[in-house]
Amino acid sequence: MSGKSTPPGRDVGLAGERTRLAWRRTALAVGVVAVLTARLALPYGTVGAVVVVLAGLGWAGVLVATFPKVAGRRSHPGRALPVTALVTAGFAVLGLLLVLASMR
């Protein structure tokens, strides 16, 4: 918010603010999915431990890639978008493998 100096009719800063908050919500949602994946993997011994580590690395990767977005430092696209999308797809793949393993 830029306060009183904003000329009327100009949307200075709010679009950036909304986008920053949207990144924050998305990073939090990735965290929830990482925790759910790790919890599902817990009963699977060594394989499960590997999945837990992968889930943690995926979340850490998203946090690192999206940090400039969440901090509002960078407005141009950058790699945060494809990294977040592909890590998300990776969680879907990990979940699929765990569900298929539970059916055997």
Binding site: T26, A29, V30, V32, V33, L36, T37, L40, T88, F91, A92, G95, V99
Partner: peptide
Amino acid sequence: LALIAGGL
């Protein structure tokens, strides 16, 4: 992410 969380 919501669909994936739902599946998990």
